[in-house]
């Protein structure tokens, strides 16, 4: 570990909902500047792991520290992009006001300064939403809404960025742009992203965490069909995104 410090350290972590054990004895170190892709079957504990790191859930046993602090204390150093599905489609709010929420920083008054506004405009720009700032949030497309939530997390700054399936509603072209954006951010931020599709994501992330009650870490280079099959525990078809065909199509031997 040459000069790297642990951004997130997880020790002997277990968590159960009622009697159902979701995560069992998890140990995990995430280094500053790391980029980690979190994969695993539905119900395997991906979102639970993220909520524990964010301090939205408390572990039954074990400990999480973020830059040496508890998740609650370190909250403002973490940017978060939730899954977008749960928003009230009638809530009267503009894209700009949603992104502004990234600049909230405490319980009371929360007036926004000129610096907050600059950060928000920059985040909107990065997410390609500058033209949509004044549009109502419920009226824009699903992909644009997702980018709004990404912009909100970017506006909040911080040292760690956590994303929960941020590409679920984004088309392939936007996804490429999005991963480019992450690549740039990764120079100054540690990135954790939950995703359901492994193949394409592996082109960007340094490590892959397979979450299924346990957490197992693999370097991206180890990612093979065999491994993916183990992760998901069954038959599945893989589609390779990373090869190109000639104009006539490709031939199988």
């Amino acid at each position: 570990m040459t000069g790297e410090t642990a951004a997130i350290a997880i020790r002997d972590l277990s968590f159960a909902y009622d009697d159902i054990q979701i995560l069992c004895n998890v140990n995990l170190d995430i280094w500053q500047g790391d980029s980690l892709c979190i994969v695993g079957p539905n119900g395997g504990g991906k979102t639970t792991l993220i909520k524990l790191i964010l301090g939205l859930l408390s572990p039954d046993c074990g400990r999480i520290s973020i830059f040496g602090e508890s998740p609650e204390e370190a909250r403002l150093r973490v940017g978060y992009v939730p899954q977008y599905a749960k928003y009230d489609p009638q809530f009267p709010i503009s894209v700009l006001d949603v992104v502004m929420m990234g600049r909230l920083a405490g319980t009371l008054r929360n007036r926004f300064s000129a610096r907050d506004k600059t950060a928000v405009m920059h985040a909107l720009d990065q997410a390609g939403l500058a033209d949509l700032a004044s549009r109502p949030f419920p009226a824009i497309s699903g992909g644009q809404r997702q980018r709004t939530l990404i912009a909100r997390a970017l506006a909040s700054g911080g040292d760690i960025l956590i994303l929960d399936e941020p590409t679920a509603n984004i088309d392939h072209e936007s996804e490429i742009k999005f991963l480019d954006l992450l690549r740039g951010l990764n120079e100054r931020m540690t990135i954790l992203m939950v995703t359901h599709e492994v193949g394409f994501a592996s082109t960007f992330f340094k490590r892959i965490a397979c979450v299924n009650r346990q957490v197992v870490i693999h370097p991206t280079s180890e990612l093979t069909g065999q491994l993916i099959q183990e992760m998901y525990g069954g038959d599945l078809k893989m589609i390779r995104h990373d090869h190109r065909c000639s104009e006539e199509g490709h031939r199988h031997e």
């Binding site: 301090g55 939205l56 909250r75 973490v78 929420m101 909230l104 405490g106 319980t107 929360n110």
Partner: peptide
């Protein structure tokens, strides 16, 4: 007038408001 932005965050996305350090239960 005083809590406008804080109430807005609470109503729009309580979970996110909590992550931005707002004591949402109190608000």
């Amino acid at each position: 007038g005083y809590f406008y932005n804080t109430f807005l965050a609470l109503c729009f996305d309580e979970e996110y408001a909590r992550l931005r350090g707002i004591r949402t239960h109190l608000i």
